[in-house]
Nucleic acid binder design. Structure first.
Length: 283
DNA sequence: TCTCAGGCACTAT
DNA sequence: ATAGTGCCTGAG
């Protein structure tokens, strides 16, 4: 049943926390409402105690909204499985109800290509500039929004045009990815049917996509919770908590995370990541 | 002026 | 396998 307005039950859910932990870009926030896109539909989202209120620009399946915000996942089971020592137990308790979203793969892939060697605020800024310049305009609740452009649209641009939006050296990576997807060389739908390792290898064939970005896309758009992206924050935190502060190569930390925390390692990663940025900011 | 930021590609070992 | 550099950009 498609709807343009509604209310969804969302227990153990924290919208602000889930939106501000660095897993998603491009949403506007104003007076308690979040404005953005779920797939191709412009939506406004707000939290009311244990529920999500939504308004959509056109009819949308509320189940997709539940899925997008991670409330269909078995949260109690996930936390139970990752809480295997006192460190992670303390972190989970301090952080709260952080849900991993299930984003649109193409948008998520581009956002994380832009994240390379870049600051969070700037990623969001550049993302919105590109969307504004090349994306479709929509409006919801009086807010104007620009959707992230389709692969076919970005495939036609010169890198200089994306550089003007602030993408820098990542401009070529975005265009190459757009060409691969638009040309059918990279099928983002079929990617979902591959194993974690196979899907990751396919993503890493794109220039500008290394292990970290591939893991982010698998975790935030494909619900591959075994992915354990290792960025500088995770590196610092995991080395300090689990390796006595010794330097460990990034690839080894990824393997450690996956084998130590198990099938929901990505959840442990997000908790540690948020905790590190919030509470360990003076290393 | 210079460093640095939620990486990656490239090159040399 | 692992370590070292350059890269767009702009805030501090």
């Amino acid at each position: 049943m498609l709807k343009t307005k509604g209310k969804i039950l969302a227990r153990r859910f924290d919208l602000d926390l889930s939106m501000k932990c660095g897993q998603v870009f491009g949403w506007d926030v104003d007076a308690g409402w979040y404005y953005g896109f779920i797939d191709s539909v412009a939506v406004a989202i707000s939290q009311r105690k244990e529920s999500i209120v939504f308004e959509a620009e056109k009819p949308l399946d509320p189940l997709r909204i539940s899925e997008y915000f991670g409330v269909t996942q078995d949260f109690d089971l996930i936390l139970k499985e990752i809480t295997i020592d006192e460190h992670i137990a303390r972190i989970v308790k301090a952080v709260g109800n952080l849900r991993i979203l299930k984003q649109d793969p193409w948008t998520c892939l581009c956002a994380f290509i832009l994240s390379s060697n870049n600051r969070v605020e700037r990623i969001d800024q550049v993302f919105k500039t590109i969307a504004c310049r090349f994306g479709v305009r929509r409006s919801i609740r009086g807010h104007t929004l620009y959707r992230w452009p389709e692969p076919s649209k970005l495939a036609l641009q010169y890198s200089s045009e994306l550089r003007e939006c602030g993408a820098g050296f990542r401009a070529d990576y975005i265009i190459e990815a757009a060409k691969a997807v638009a040309g059918g060389k990279l099928d983002l739908v079929k990617l979902g049917n591959l194993s974690y390792e196979q899907a990751k290898a396919r993503l890493m064939e794109i220039k500008g996509v290394g292990e970290k970005i591939a893991d982010c896309v698998l975790l935030f758009a494909y619900a591959r919770y075994e992915a354990f992206p290792v960025d500088v924050w995770i590196k610092r935190a995991v080395e300090e908590i689990y390796f006595g502060g010794h330097n460990i190569p990034t690839a080894k930390l990824g393997k450690f995370g996956r084998s130590y925390f198990g099938r929901y390692a990505g959840y442990a990663q997000e908790y540690i990541y948020y905790y590190a940025r919030r509470f360990m900011t003076d290393p």
